[in-house]
Each structure stands twice: as C-alpha cells, then as structure tokens.
Nucleic acid binder design. Structure first.
Length: 820
RNA sequence: GCCGGGAUGGCGGAAUGGCAGACGCCUGGGACUUAAAAUCCCAUGGGAAUUAUAUUCCCGUGCCGGUUCAAGUCCGGCUCCCGGCACCA
C-alpha cells in the first residue's frame, strides 16, 4: 500500500460500524425457529478455524450474506447461521511443533474469525453458533456414532494404512511424498490396523438414486458423486483352482470376453495368496516381488502410465467356459479395494491386460471381432475395447457382443459358475484417526464383554485437556492412562477405552441439524424443528467439497431418515459451489505467501468496496484472479453512487440520455438483477448492469419536476438493488433518502413490463453471414417490411448488386441475413 | 492415471447458435486546479485503406477438422491449466 492518504469519496469508516451495530442490536438476523413463516435456510459451509481469513475465504461468506439479505427483502424468514468445524490436524501439528494447545489456538482463531465476519457486515443468527470441538457439540457426534453402531452401520476391520516407522504414525496420502514421509523422509510402509468404519456402501444405491432429486445441484457435482459411487453391473465368475477346493472369484463387467481370459491376476493384498503360495518352490522370491508392489502408493499403481509389473505364482486356475488351464499372477495394477481383488484378464480386449500380457508374453486371443476390418493378434498395438461380433467363443460365435453379454451371463447362472452382481467403486468410510484433536470414539474394550459402546447417559467421552504433545507421532490419548482407563458399562470390570478419535468429516456431516437446537443439552436436534426447516434451501461452499463432505452428509441424513429422526431424504435442496480466488496464478494460501489481507483493504476503502469487488470479480462458480487495482474501481463506483444519491453531484454534462430511455433502463436493471439472483447468482453481471444504470443517470440532465422524480426513483432503485451486496452504504443512503426502516425490511423493487418496451430497434443486416449494415426500425415492424428495408439499404445494395439472392433469414428483433 | 471443470483484448470478464469484447481495471488525451490528488468527459482488440478524420475493408474467442445462411457457443480429434482422488478440511 502506498503511504499517502487517499481522500475518501464517502465516509465509510463512520457508517460501516454504525450499521453493523444497528443490525446486531435490532437482531435482524435472529430467527424464532419455532414459528417460521415462509422459511428460507441459507447455509454457508462452516469453516475450519484458520488464524486469519483472507479475501479468498471472504468470497464464501459474502455470497452467503448477499443471498440471505436478498431473500429477506423478498419476504422470506431467513435463517443464516455460522459455526466452526473446529477439530482437525493442523491445530494438533502446531501444538506438536511447540505451539499452543489445540483448544487454545482454535478458540483464539474462532474469536478472530468472528471479528472479521462481523467487520465484513455478514449477518448471522449468532446465538445458534456451533463449535464442533466443544463437548456440548461432540457429545452428539458421539451419539451419532452410537446410533450407527446400534444399526450395525459402524464396524471394525483391519485395513492397511500408510505408516511412517520413524514417526510411528499414520499418514494421509498427501503426507506421502514419493513414497516417503513428508516430515522425516523415512520410507513409508503399509501397516494393517484395526479401524472403525461406517457402512456407507449399504446406502450406495440410494445415494446414487436420490441424486435425481437434487435438481438444484450443479450437474458437475452430481456427475462427480455418481462416478465416485461408481455402480457397475457385471458377473462374479468362479474360477476353479488346480489342486484346491475353493475357487477364485473374479468380478467382470465384460463377461462377453470370457473365452479370451488367458490368465488371472490377484491384488498383492489378496487373502488367498498365502495359501496359494504354500507349496510353491520359489515362494520367497514371489513374496519379495509382492511386497515390492505393496510399497507403491495407490495413485501410482492405478496410473495407466506406470509400468504394469507382476509375478507368476506358479499356480493355475481353470477358465470355466473353455476348460483351459490358465496361470495365476499377482500384479500391481489390481486393487483389493475394488471388486473381488482378483481379475480375469482378456488382453485382446482390455488395455491394461494387453500391456501386461505383452510384457510377460502371456497369450492373447481375440474373441470379439470387427467384421469390416478383422483383428490380427500379431499386428495389434493395443486392445480392442469396442463392441463387435463374437469369435473363438464356442456356442456364442457369430452373435453380437452386446447380445452375448446377456446370453453368457444366463448360461453361467444356469450352470452355477457365475452370478450377476452389482459392484460399487465406493468404499466404506474409515472414520478412525490415530490423533488427539477429534471426537473420541465412544467405545470400551472389555476383556469379558468385548466391544461395548459407551451408554448414551455417559456421553460425552471428554477429551482430556492435560496431555503431552510430542513429536513422536503417537496420539497423546494413547499415552494418557487416565483417559484410557474405564469400567466396562456391562460388567463393571476394568476395561480400556478406544483411543482413536473420529474423522472430522463425521463432525461436519450433521452440523446443519444442530444449529436449530444449538443449546439443547438433552438431544442432538429437535425433529420437529429440523423437519420444518430442512432441507436447506441454499447450501453454499467450495467445489473442493463436491464429493466427500456432501456424500457423507447425505449418508448420515439417510440413516436418520431410516431411524425416523428426520422426514426428509436429502439435506440440501440447492447447492452452489463457488470457485477459488487466485493470486499470482495460485490458490491464495498462507504457505504460498500470496494472501491478500482484507483488514488493510477495509481500512483504506471500507468493507462495502471489498464486498462489491469480491462479487464483481467474475462468475462466482469459477475461479478468479484477485487484482488490487480492481478494488479501486469498485471504490470509485461506490463514490459515484454516494455522490449521486446524496445529491451533492453537480455534473455539468449535456443530457445525452433521455427520460424515457432512463426509465426503461431502470426497469431493465431491476429485471436483470432479479433474474441473476434468482438464477445462478451471477452477481458480476448484476453489478455491471447497475453500473450501466448509474452511468446513464450521470448522462441525464433533469429538466423539470417529473425528471427529478424519475431521478429520485432511480436512486431509490439502485439503493435497494445494491443493498444485498453493499449493505452499509445502502442502509445509510436509504435513511438519507428519508426512509425510517432498515433496507432489509423493505421489499425488493419490481419492474413493469410496459416500461421494458422499446419503440425502435437496431437491426443488424448481414450479407451471407457478415454484418454489412445496421438499420433502425420501429419495434412493431412486420417481417416483410423489415426485409424490404434491409434490401433497400444503401450499404447492403452495394454488396448484393448483380448477385442472385438465395434466401433471406430474419431473426426477430435481432438481424436480417441476406444469403447470396 | 481416473473423475470433474476451464482456456475470449495488456488484465478480470460479457455474449437464449444471430452485431465478439458489455461492465470494470490498466493506458492515452482533455476539462477543472497555482499545482497535485480527487472528480468529470473522450478514446482504447490487431492490421490496412482513404484524408472525405468519417467511414470502409481484412484478421481475430487455446490448436486441427466438421455441421450451419450464421459457431466463442454444436460435433469429432488434440494441447495446456485448475479442482477432487477416500487420514488436509
């Protein structure tokens, strides 16, 4: 920032705090949730408490606040709430590095964020605030766990995790850099831990089906969710194993290619592997290769770029359709998480299998052919994955592969060698975290009674404050004897607590219900209230949450629905995902050092300027580049606006704009702004239309009382239209225009159709698609007259002279195209 | 790699298949001023022709091709960039 003082265009520093206090004192954002009349639940994704908000964060809250204010003016009873997703890894990591206790730093951060939100003029029903790291909240997160446990939807199983042997801790995929721990660079290994899961897979079908109910969601988010769930139909085929009783199961979506299955590949983690290798001579060698594959991370393994590596187990299976003996391999590109962890390989018709077969010289057999251009194995450079005609497939030869898909499945089901199944890519939700700063999982392990849930009356299982944060990576809870010690709720004997905490996504999967009963000590939420208020009318947040958070929230709500706790199937009626704010080509973040602090900007220009620029910067669903000079433009506009409405402007221009044009523009502006707010929240175009209106007003010179009344009407309209975006200046100007009540209590301006009508239109005249002239015609001209007028235009004449006119296309109110 | 999205002047962006570049920024010029700031007005995609200084023409929406009277917009094939990928939230 330059050090000279800018002369203020208007006294924002005096008016902004004044109106913030006014809204707060008047309780304009407080809602009596038991008496909703035309309710509107406007929800912004609650944030993780970071040290200070930058202008990139601001976009989310400013959009939410603009929507809430607009809906209030439309007469809705708007509930707009705020809370904090306060558990999480960064606060704990900071504590380990010698920083403050997570509870202290988190609550400090929350206090600062609340100061900033207030400073931004964002109105919330603060008494309903929720903070997920406080026992009053996480007591009920634990209750959610118990409900899922009762329903059989929470279970324990062994699962491989990324483990750093030096830090003695679990790592997220993002903490693994090139196979090593990001902190100490030790090689990361796979380790199996007993962990808690939520059975989201049993809701896979409903989560997929009900996407069709979500018409108010962006199509891309629905597509991403559908792909994430990844439903596929196929056949589970039993392959008998030579010298074994138990067959191997392979799931395939391409049963039509079964006659071309020339080998089988197992995932390195496949449970049958140990027994299959028992009697194999080079067992040690094979196992070494297998552990090498396990060391690769998932992203590398599934990449088609990564070299497919494998090892032959020395064992064989039987292709149940051909009766052939086919080898069983282990390969890095097969994942235990998907399907059955073993695949039948058809190199001629699957790209990955093709690469693998080439590398290890495994047989390739074409079973689906292209009739026009038959395939030849010797010359194939890749797999043929399209449909075609069956060949080399015994009784199925000659029919189409599509038809064969059904016939072969029927045949296999009849002979009991295969079964049609549905498979999902979606995995169960792993909720265990070996960390301190999260809600403890309410489970007790008793030597006699086994796994015993903590009874509801004993909740919350309180997170002990007095723990040691050490850089060993071991969860502080694990070393806390006082916490670990518990009495079995059933038999009262000595027992141990679960020391893992829950994934923070559990906290955030139900918070929108808690807002309605934030201070209720007896229950997590009130069914009657949530049934009145939900689904959320408008949910607003970052597109980075398009899959996980939204899917988990949908899942938990469906579980509550099944428990008769709520009467709605989906939590969020409409979803808006806003884009990120970019600075110098990268996402704004503290670590990249490209953050723009709102505090300085607010001091210099006032918060309405920052809000206006944030909304004007671009279409809100797209990423946008922050530009400090653009802020200046927003500030200039507000100064112009202020001077006009406050009446101190004595512009001395000729009246270029006529009264009837100005009136029409005013009504067009109301229509455009309203349409933008009712549609996709394109604040940028709404604001630019208001700017055009202001520019026109500056070109208008009132001549008489009628003109002055029109001018005043325009001023009033602009104050109301801008008030959701820049509420402080508008609240102030509204008073100066002589009104007593808050703009929020005012109703949204209406436009009149009769004022939108134009008397004359400018029509473009094209000659074979190129604009050659423009003509002004009466708005009610007939097509024939228009055509004649176009043909007789001087400029047009010179282009069509001596040419034959093929046809004339007329687009009403827009153009005439003369095709020669 | 897989899934989703994007690419338009010097910059952010605007455009129901129908006049590309609204609005804002930057820049240049002018008015006001002792001067500056602020403010107000005008110009502003690139190239060319004419000097009649107003107008005309040509080229332009990441790249290659197609459909159409007409394509930033639709179709096919690429390139590059961004988000998510299950322990960041």
């Amino acid at each position: 920032m330059n050090d000279y003082k800018v002369k203020k265009s208007y006294p924002f520093d005096a008016i902004e705090p004044k109106w913030q206090k006014f809204w707060e004192d008047q309780g304009l954002f407080r809602v009596d949730v038991d008496n909703p009349v035309s309710k509107y639940y406007c929800l912004v994704m609650f944030p993780y408490p970071s040290a200070a908000l930058h202008v990139g964060h601001g976009r989310n809250y400013i959009i939410g606040d603009a929507v809430a204010r607009y809906k209030m003016m439309r007469g809705f009873c708007v509930l707009s709430t705020m809370g904090f997703d306060a558990f999480g890894l960064p606060a704990e990591n900071a504590a380990i590095k010698g920083g403050l206790h997570p509870k202290v730093s988190t609550l400090n951060n929350i206090a600062n964020m609340k100061r900033q939100l207030h400073q931004w003029g964002c109105g919330y029903d603060w008494p309903k605030e929720v903070i997920s790291c406080l026992p009053e909240y996480y007591k009920w997160t634990q209750w959610v766990f118990l409900k899922l446990y009762e329903k059989g939807l929470a279970y324990k199983k062994r699962q491989a995790v990324n483990w750093c042997p030096s830090c003695q801790t679990t790592l997220a995929n993002e903490q693994v850099v090139d196979g090593s721990c990001e902190r100490c660079e030790t090689k990361v290994i796979e380790k199996e831990l007993e962990q808690w899961f939520f059975k989201i897979t049993s809701y896979a079908d409903r989560l997929l089906e009900d996407l069709s109910l979500l018409e108010g969601w962006p199509e891309r988010v629905r597509t991403m969710q559908a792909n994430w769930i990844g439903k596929s139909h196929g056949v589970d085929i039993s392959f008998p194993v030579v010298d074994e009783k138990e067959p191997l199961h392979c799931f395939t979506t391409r049963v039509d290619t079964i006659f071309g299955a020339t080998y089988i590949v197992l995932a390195p983690e496949h449970p049958r592997l140990g027994s299959l290798l028992r009697a194999v001579d080079n067992r040690a060698e094979v196992e070494r290769a297998v552990s090498g594959m396990k060391a690769q991370d998932i992203i590398t393994r599934t990449s088609t770029e990564t070299e497919k590596v494998g090892v032959f187990t020395g064992r064989y299976a039987i292709n149940p359709m051909t009766g052939e003996k086919i080898p069983i391999w282990v390969g890095n590109y097969v994942l235990m998480e998907y399907g059955t962890g073993s695949i039948m390989c058809v190199p001629a018709h699957d790209e990955r299998d093709f690469q693998f077969a080439k590398r290890y010289s495994l047989p390739i057999r074409v079973v689906i052919d292209r009739p026009r251009d038959p395939l030849d194995v010797k010359s194939m450079s890749g797999a043929y994955v399209e449909e075609g005609v069956m060949v080399n497939s015994g009784p199925f030869n000659g029919i189409s592969s599509r038809e064969a898909m059904e016939k072969i499945a029927d045949d296999m089901e009849k002979r009991k060698i295969g079964k049609r199944t549905v498979n999902y890519r979606l995995k169960d939700w792993l909720i265990s975290r070996q960390r301190y700063w999260g809600a403890p999982i309410p489970i007790i392990y008793c030597k006699k009674c086994g796994i015993v849930p903590v009874p509801e009356k004993d909740l919350p299982v309180v997170l002990p404050d007095d723990v040691k944060f050490q850089p060993t990576g071991v969860s502080p809870l694990k070393g806390d004897e006082g916490f670990k010690h518990a009495k079995c709720p059933k038999c009262k004997s000595e027992a141990e607590r679960e020391v893992d905490t829950m994934d923070t996504f559990v906290d955030s999967s139900w918070y929108f219900l808690r807002y309605l009963s934030a201070d209720d000590p007896k229950k997590p939420f009130d069914s009657k209230r949530v049934n009145n208020w939900l689904p959320v009318d408008q949910y607003i947040g970052g597109v980075e949450h398009a899959i996980l958070h939204l899917l988990y929230s949908r899942f938990i709500v469906k579980v509550f629905y099944d428990l008769n706790l709520v009467s709605f199937k989906e939590p969020f009626q409409r979803l808006f995902t806003q884009g990120m704010i970019i600075k110098d080509g990268a996402k704004m973040s503290k670590s990249k050092g490209n953050v723009v602090s709102p505090d300085e900007l607010i001091e210099r220009y006032g918060v309405d300027t920052v809000r206006l620029y944030t909304l004007f910067i671009g279409p809100p669903e797209k990423d946008a580049e922050w530009n400090d000079q653009g802020v200046e433009g927003a500030y200039r506009f507000l100064g112009r606006f202020w001077r006009l409405v406050d009446g101190i402007n004595d512009w001395n221009v000729e009246g270029k704009v006529e009264a009837n044009v100005l009136r029409r523009m005013a009504h067009e502006t109301i229509k455009k702004v309203t349409d933008d707010l009712e549609g996709d929240f394109h604040f940028n175009t709404a604001i630019s239309t208001i700017m055009e209106l202001l520019n026109a007003v500056y070109q208008f010179r009132p001549k008489d009382e009628t003109d002055r009344a029109l001018l005043k009407e325009c001023a009033k309209t602009m104050v109301l239209l801008l008030s959701p975006f820049t509420p402080h200046i508008c609240e102030e100007l509204w008073r100066r225009l002589g009104h007593k009540a808050s703009v929020l209590k005012e109703s949204w301006p209406r436009y009149e159709e009769k004022h939108l009508v134009r008397e004359e239109l400018e029509i473009a005249v094209q000659v074979t698609g190129r604009v050659r002239s423009r003509i002004v015609v009466p708005a009610d001209i007939s097509e024939e007259e228009l055509k004649q007028k176009a043909l007789n235009d001087e400029k047009v004449k010179s282009w069509i002279e001596g040419k034959q006119i093929k046809t004339v296309i007329i687009v009403p109110k827009r153009l005439v195209n003369i095709v020669i």
